[in-house]
Amino acid sequence: MTAPVLSVRNLVTEFDTRAGTLRAVNNVSFDVQPGEVLGIVGESGSGKTITGFSIMQLLDQPGKVKSGEILLNGKDLNKEDSRELRKLRGDRIAMIFQDPMMTLNPVLRIDTQMIETIQAHRNVSKAEARQIAEDALAQVGIPSPAERLKTYPHEMSGGMRQRVVIAIALMLEPDLIIADEPTTALDVTIQSQILYEMQRLLSDRNMGLIWITHDLTVVAGLAHKVAVMYAGRIVEYGSVNELLDAPAHPYTRGLIDSIPSNASHGKRLTQIPGMTPSLLNLGDGCPFRPRCSKATDACAVDPDEHTLSEGHWVRCHNPVLEAKG
């Protein structure tokens, strides 16, 4: 096995608020291998976005990485100073944000924003940088990139803007890209275009990708590994096939069952009862307990990781063991 691009070990991220300390990411560990896509799935508030921003070291106040290691190519990002982090961001580790309408600066032209990114990391002339930017736009399927470069973000559609953002992410050939729900704000046809484009671009590059989403169907088509997050922790982790075919955690199973499909046609849609718990008063034990149909007295004690098979583990006392059917 090659060395992972990214190795997150026991990551804890907390927000010190007036109401108390909020543990948004709780003891999270995972690896991303070169060329591998890791899907992080969870409901809103499960800590998936905060995990992404923790890796980028771009948490908003009062968020703080409390403990753990974030090793990018063996370098712990928690220990780097801001100068070193600035050099890594955008160059070795790039991020794609959720809402393409809000991501690009409205008062700066596309070329300004692309060229400044290149020049922040590479010692090239403006003309060379422009050429790199133009090639990057062409690669993500933007027609007449030279003209597009001279436009402002508001002159483009959402899909086009997200392509620009993806082009910026790929432009400097980073080792890792973190994509935070990049297709959520787009309509379905554009979403599938972008996903197709992503798959095409990833196939000939050896970069790691973390795809943060609440949409399991997107993960099914794109990811190699999946981590399901609930209330700040990973509750199930495994390869995409195993996890989707034999979801072991009741929560994962609930997520899969919530997707309307042909099989459920005419029947009432299944849903997970209740809501994501407040991170302020989680109490002891499994945080999913109040919503779980399989909860027993044992669940009052926090469950450990149970390995089900090679590379597939679940954090549950009563995992669902029969295959999905």
Partner: peptide, 12 residues
């Protein structure tokens, strides 16, 4: 977001 994104791109 665009300010955070500018930082995420490694701008000074």
């Amino acid at each position: 977001d665009y300010v955070k994104y500018a930082r995420a791109r490694g701008l000074s």
